[in-house]
Amino acid sequence: MHRFANPTRFLRLAAAVLPFSAAVAALCLGAGLVWGLFFAPPDYQQGDTVRIMFIHVPAAMMAMGVYAGMAISSAIALIWRHAIADLIAKASAPIGATFCFICLLTGSLWGKPMWGTWWVWDARLTSMLIMLFIYLGYMALWQAFDDQTKAARAAAILALVGAINLPVIKFSVEWWNTLHQPASLITMDGPKIHSSLLWPLLLMIVGFGAYYLTVLIFRVRAEVHQRRTRMLRMAQADRHAAMQAAE
């Protein structure tokens, strides 16, 4: 576990993974987009609108997946005081929030032709919206502390509390939704999806995942360098103080 806590080792590993993840992201996203937007057959009910799914569904999955990853790295950071785990959680949050936002945006674009309105309080979209707020709260908490060690601990606690709460929120929102709107909405992810749509969708999902990994590596690398800069600046201040004391 602590092998990877060492930033130098992490940077080496990251440098090795980066070209692959970037290549996979570019290939899968490119191929998936072309396939999904131009070659996949239109849906017999929704027509070409269904193609939004190729962005919407992977974004939704990644928004949830990134949160799960954030919660796991937060737990590792809390229990083992693992410094890179902190940075992974911190660097993940804006990416996850962006996926969340893309999911909401595409959901809204999809809603206009489907339901004739830009926003519908559908259970999934509502859960996604709440999740976006949780991401924002997490990021704001990181910003609120000057002391990065404290910020990391506080944010980790919040991420875990959120992880315990999210299933309850999701369940309660679904309960609320069935009360107020009889479920008439079309579910796009599920086993009944046609295979001609499935392959481009899978490509997109892999592409989104690789894209996340690529951006994550960039962000964590930047965080490591920032932390080093801070340590050097502190050392500079300490030396100055010591010189003055000696004079």
Binding site: L136, A140, S172
Partner: peptide
């Protein structure tokens, strides 16, 4: 303000039930 941002989403299940 931060407190409100953090806590409100967690209150939703209680509100719904």
């Amino acid at each position: 303000v931060l407190l409100t941002l953090i806590v409100t989403p967690l209150y939703i299940p209680v509100l719904i039930f």
